[in-house]
Nucleic acid binder design. Structure first.
Length: 387
RNA sequence: GGCAGCGUAGCUCAGUGGUAGAGCAGGGGAAUCAUAAUCCCUUGGUCGGGUGUUCAAAUCACCCCGCUGCUACCA
């Protein structure tokens, strides 16, 4: 029993010695045992109706299509208990059986919350239904067919959303034992840094698709987006403040239209990323945020505060204030993606710990002129490789 | 085999009827506050191939080529 799996007779092929061979190539054994079944076959129509009424339940939509066609093809009842081993949760009233395969596993989502002993104010009350099950694409069926059917049978609410993420390839190749090309996450963290790795995984691919991780594109993104992008923007802004504003947030004068335009985009970032965030379109969220980084670079260049320090110190202060305030919103909004580095950036902007959540993204959390800032420190080192 | 989807600039992709787009890479210029980072301009595509519908197609229909996913009891 090499595979520890059930195979349908139709899947089997004839082996050389007259026996049967599983798709994996392993010889199979015929095992017979009594088992309780879940009447999955009775839930096909109800499931299809659920997918219709909750179009966002199964995501990405390519997975929803697959699941729908799977269900349309007809469902078979599901064996949910075993008698051939004893580890596991005994079936109430028939202790020879233990619950096995997916029923026991999926029920953990609610058993962990105290189900069925839930009452007023219980964990179950508080956390179920789940807002999101984030699962690998290989087990999406169990979470979008079996699990909803189980919940229907128990008369419980459905989760709000089940999102199936994809796989990574490395340098264009599948990750496999035989190729020996697996990379431990800790190795990536060591090579690129923790937040850099987080960013790469979120930005490199439309979330839900498979993605390819390559050293070349990792360096390209880290240098272009992080070191040259938000890192450099922060460094040049904070250094200018440090040297020319007595290391304190400058007092802004009247805002020009250009000032207002940038501040407005920054203060309203939330509106523009909220729906993508809720749909797990993380790469889109980052793209939108990085649009503001780009706009800030254009702003600092056209206003050239380094030139203003000789001609109009007050105006220089306003420009640097606008930039610092934009950086503040960028840091807050990027926190979920790169918490450690953004925390450092917020420290450098002297933003109080209790004013770093999304509620302070808008004008409510605006920087206070006169606040003294610590000396700036680089956020993302540029990666330079020897040829 | 069946069902679904994809194939657009060197690379990654956006664009679903109305004169081909973004980021990165490449080329030229500007600036010099900043991690030699930044800004501006720019080269580059018969939108997989073919036929058709339409005043008009990357965008719709059909065919072909190539690629991918799903096709049940492994958490």
């Amino acid at each position: 029993m090499r595979d520890e799996a059930f195979y349908d007779e139709a899947e089997l092929k004839d082996g050389p010695d007259g026996g049967k061979i599983a798709p994996s190539g392993a010889p199979v054994t015929w095992v017979e045992e009594p088992s309780y079944f879940f009447r999955l076959s009775a839930y096909g129509d109800a499931l299809l109706a659920l997918y219709e009424s909750e179009p966002d339940l199964v995501a990405p939509s390519s997975r929803r299509n697959e699941i729908k066609s799977f269900v349309k093809g007809g469902l078979r009842d599901l064996s949910i208990s075993r008698t051939s081993f004893s580890w596991g949760v005994p079936v109430p009233g028939d202790e020879k059986h233990v619950m096995y395969v997916w029923l026991d596993a999926l029920v953990n989502y609610i058993a962990a919350l105290g189900y069925p002993g839930m009452g007023e104010g219980s964990q179950f009350d508080r956390f179920w239904p789940a807002n999101l099950h984030l699962v690998g694409k290989d087990i999406v069926r169990f979470h979008t067919v079996y699990w909803p059917a189980f919940l229907m049978a128990a008369g419980l609410d459905q989760p709000k959303r089940v999102f199936a993420h994809g796989w990574w390839t490395i340098e264009g190749q599948k990750i496999s034992k035989s190729l020996g090309n697996a990379i431990a996450p800790s190795q990536l963290v060591e090579t690129y840094g923790l937040d850099q790795t987080r960013y790469l995984l979120m930005a490199e691919v439309p979330f839900g698709n498979d993605g390819d991780f390559s050293h070349k594109s990792a360096i390209r993104r880290i240098n272009a987006d992080l070191a040259n992008g938000i890192g450099n923007l922060a460094q040049r802004t904070l250094t200018l403040i440090q040297k020319n504003c007595a290391a304190a947030i400058p007092e802004p004068g009247a805002f020009t239209d250009q000032d207002k335009a940038l501040l407005d985009v920054a203060h309203r970032l939330w509106e523009r990323i909220e729906s993508d965030l809720r749909l797990q379109s993380f790469h889109e969220v980052l793209r939108t945020i990085w649009g503001v980084v780009g706009a800030s670079d254009v702003y600092i260049d056209t206003n050239a505060p380094w030139a203003l320090k000789k001609t109009d110190v007050a105006r220089m202060g306003t420009v640097l204030y606008v930039l610092a305030e934009t950086l503040r919103t960028l840091a807050i909004v990027v926190q979920p993606f790169m918490p450690e580095t953004m925390s450092r950036l917020l420290n450098q902007l002297a933003v109080p710990e209790d004013k770093r959540n999304f509620a302070f993204l808008g004008e409510e959390g605006t920087l206070t002129p006169g606040t003294v800032l610590p000396p700036p420190q680089g956020l993302f080192p540029r990666i330079v490789e020897a040829e």
